[in-house]
Nucleic acid binder design. Structure first.
Lengths: 218, 218
DNA sequence: GTCAAGGTTTTTGTATACAGAAACGGCGCG
DNA sequence: CGCGCCGTTTCTGTATACAAAAACCTTGAC
């Protein structure tokens, strides 16, 4: 049989969870999913293991696996941590960044601005991601880079929403340039502060958004 | 059959990896392990999934699972991140900590000192852990608490080594008291700086240790 | 009418069997 | 003598079958 069946299933399930087909606390039935995907229970269980690695589901022994989707509170917590992660990366990168990487940052920023001007949302996301990943890498700490990228990836589905606020993109671009400047000047504290605020703002915007979306929920 | 077989196997394998029976890059043979534990391959694979969650092994598709033990460089990176984690927890906790928790910190510190005086190493480790976990909790950020505890746990086997340096325990105790003072004074920056240094020192000690142990390795 | 106990059903966990891919070795060719 | 190709073997991935535990429902007693 196809060797990467379990991986594909994991991806599809990931999509289903992100799309909201499965909500927080929902139990994922092995048998139903096995029938649905036309495979046995084994690759389903394998897929569950993959999802558990990403933190999307949690397996409770003898009970089954349950969708673990962060609620508003946990999401705010995650954004707060994300801001600190980026801040640390920036602080370290300010001392360790190479000239080549600085050029790459400026290039990513230029592409980013071009995407904004062209109204190319996908392009913006892609270049924005590149920008941040360069900073992660330049922290010179592979473990930090990995953990930061991990959380970044996990928050990805929720980041899209809050960027639709008018004027945020232009402001974000300005912040990017200030960050590049701080890194160029090798100013660790400034870079750390700028990056923290840059991401923290995303969290706040997100908070306002969910607050306006469901005011009666809490 | 016993329902928690896979969990037990996972624990045993964890012990084997920590004890050095399996080194970095070693491939874990499903069949051999199945024979060794007297079970089929299925619970072994289940155990692998658990270990992968802890980051102790890495599964490469169609190749098998391999022990992923951090080398000196990665370990240093992890200690650096650990220091930043604790620092963040301290900064947030300084603003959010409760009087009850402050009392608990002082109590843990007292027990800690008693253990040091009694030469009770295990007691020291336990109370020291309690001390730090209280701070994680008091950050008021459940996600941060979880991630910090996770990394703390992962570094646990390597922490034991570096504490055997003479005089470190007493110094560590003094740092603990300074940290409690900073939290009592609600001084976020001071608490953050103290905690960062408190943990960073561990990383440095560790670095010196491995440097002295294998000078020809690099 | 409510609660508890027992049996039934559903579901997880494990064992075994099989298919397909990757690693290994021998053979032939240049 | 070195290199590449093909058959063999070993191992991962998947399917199916079975055991055991938890959830569910029914039934009986208080």
């Amino acid at each position: 049989m196809e060797p990467r069946r379990a991986d594909q299933i994991a991806e599809e399930l990931e999509g289903l969870i992100f799309s909201g087909a499965f909500g927080d606390g929902d139990r994922l039935d092995e048998i139903r999913l096995a029938e649905r995907f036309g495979v046995s229970r084994t690759p389903i269980r394998e897929a569950f293991a993959r999802l558990a690695l990403s933190g999307l589901v949690e397996a409770i022994p003898r009970r089954g696996v349950f969708v673990r989707q962060p609620g508003p509170v946990e999401l705010m917590d995650m954004f707060e941590v994300m801001a600190e992660f980026e801040s640390i990366c920036g602080r370290l990168a300010a001392a360790r960044i190479s000239d080549t990487a600085l050029d790459q940052l400026r290039a990513a920023n230029t592409s980013c601005r071009a995407a904004v001007d062209a109204g190319d949302a996908d392009g913006y996301y892609r270049e924005n991601e590149r920008f941040h990943h360069i900073i992660y890498r330049q922290s010179g700490n592979a473990f930090l880079e990995g953990e930061t990228a991990r959380l970044h990836r996990r928050l990805k589905p929720f980041r899209r929403v809050q960027l639709q606020v008018r004027g945020r993109l232009a402001q974000s671009m300005a912040e990017h340039e200030a960050i590049v400047q701080a890194l160029t000047d090798a100013a660790p504290d400034r870079a750390a502060a700028l990056l923290r605020d840059h991401v923290a703002v995303q969290g706040e915007k997100f908070h306002h958004l969910i607050a306006s979306l469901k005011p009666a929920a809490e």
